[in-house]
């Protein structure tokens, strides 16, 4: 099973790389913000799989939850900030 988890983690990392295309070349600012959010969800899952591979689930699950909450709050703060500034 460890090989399977490693393969899935590699696929997810590859998807993160594809998402970075929009973060770099995205035509508008909000494309870049969405891209960061999408990378956040995939990182959350990669962290969980890391915990399975290293057999330290109790530690990695807390980090993963923190990452989920941070990317959620980050999206909300970006949304508020750009409405107020009218940058978009």
């Amino acid at each position: 099973m460890d090989n399977f988890f490693l393969a899935i983690a590699l696929v997810l990392s590859f998807l993160v790389l594809i998402c970075l295309y929009r973060a770099v070349f995205g035509p508008t600012v909000i494309d870049r913000i969405i891209s960061v959010g999408v990378v956040g969800t995939k990182t959350l899952l990669v962290l969980l799989l890391m915990g399975l591979i290293y057999k330290r689930m109790d530690m990695f699950v807390d980090i993963s939850l923190l990452y989920a909450i941070l990317s959620f709050i980050g999206a909300l703060i970006f949304a508020k900030y750009f409405v107020r500034k009218g940058v978009l």
Binding site: T41, L65, F72, A75, L76, A79
Partner: peptide, 25 residues
């Protein structure tokens, strides 16, 4: 984590689109 994302994901989507719509795009 799954339940949190189930509730939080649509909310974050809605917040970003809301700010874009209010900015006039």
């Amino acid at each position: 984590i799954a339940v949190f994302w189930f509730l939080g994901g649509p909310t974050a989507t809605h917040a970003l689109l809301n700010s874009a719509f209010k900015s006039g795009i």
